[in-house]
């Protein structure tokens, strides 16, 4: 299991244990973390699982997926260089302790 820390827009912190091979969006939903809607369920067809990867973690997380950039344009909140769709971040042991910041809203 790999530890992921979600920080809401008002600073609330939730740490969850997620299975390797799963993705950050599903880890948030499985643990009732508020702030991720995931309307499309992980098919990269909406932008309601938008998140900001903590700057210390951007290299480890890696680049956006092919097509992710287009879909991020539909995000409700500001898109920053650290913006990702959390359904596209696959959980693996190197991401243990990953910090994910959540936007104020998804819709």
């Amino acid at each position: 299991m790999t530890k992921i820390i979600f920080i809401s827009s008002d600073g609330n912190e939730t740490a969850v244990e997620a299975a390797d091979g799963d993705n950050v969006m599903r880890a948030a939903l499985a643990n009732d973390v508020d702030g991720i809607v995931a309307e499309c369920g992980g098919s990269m067809m909406c932008a309601t699982c938008h998140c900001y990867v903590d700057e210390a973690w951007t290299d480890a997380v890696g680049a956006r997926a092919d097509g992710e950039e287009d879909m991020l344009e539909s995000a409700a909140c500001e898109v920053r260089p650290t913006s990702r769709l959390s359904c596209q971040i696959r959980i693996r042991p190197e991401l243990d302790g990953l910090i994910i910041h959540l936007p104020e809203s998804q819709t």
Binding site: L29, V37, A38, E39, C40, G41, G42, S43, M44, M45, C46
Partner: peptide, 21 residues
């Protein structure tokens, strides 16, 4: 019901789902 399978799942998940919604 987040995660329902009516639009499929993964890379082949319904591409027109936003229009349907």
């Amino acid at each position: 019901p987040v995660g329902h399978m009516a639009f499929g799942a993964g890379i082949h998940g319904c591409v027109g789902q936003n229009l349907a919604r």
